[in-house]
Amino acid sequence: MSFTKREDSNQKKGICVLDASPDMTIYCAANNLAEIKGYYAEFNHFELNLSDVEEIDSSGIQLLLALKQSATKDGKQVFLNAISNPVAEVMDVLNIRSHFDWIQPE
């Protein structure tokens, strides 16, 4: 329900493209984390599409930040491509866009 791996993810290149679910709040946090953790073990390169996210709270942001931070540490890569308005709004409030690497500069 949460992070869905796209079929076009290129296994060879080890790129995992994930579509985030509409709900990135505390209510799905445990679930979201479990799924990300699963992919994280498997891939070294991630592209996150957040354009469908309808609701995101601190826990969701925190998850993204944790992913990015762990990746940096482990030499993996995490890119964001598209983000929805709610995500943009939160990122602006917290001024954290610069924490992430972007595929398409906004």
Partner: peptide, 16 residues
């Protein structure tokens, strides 16, 4: 913020 492995998704780790 802990690593993905250690994080408790329902806890808050951020400072502002």
């Amino acid at each position: 913020l802990p690593s993905l492995n250690d994080i408790n998704p329902e806890e808050s780790y951020l400072g502002f």
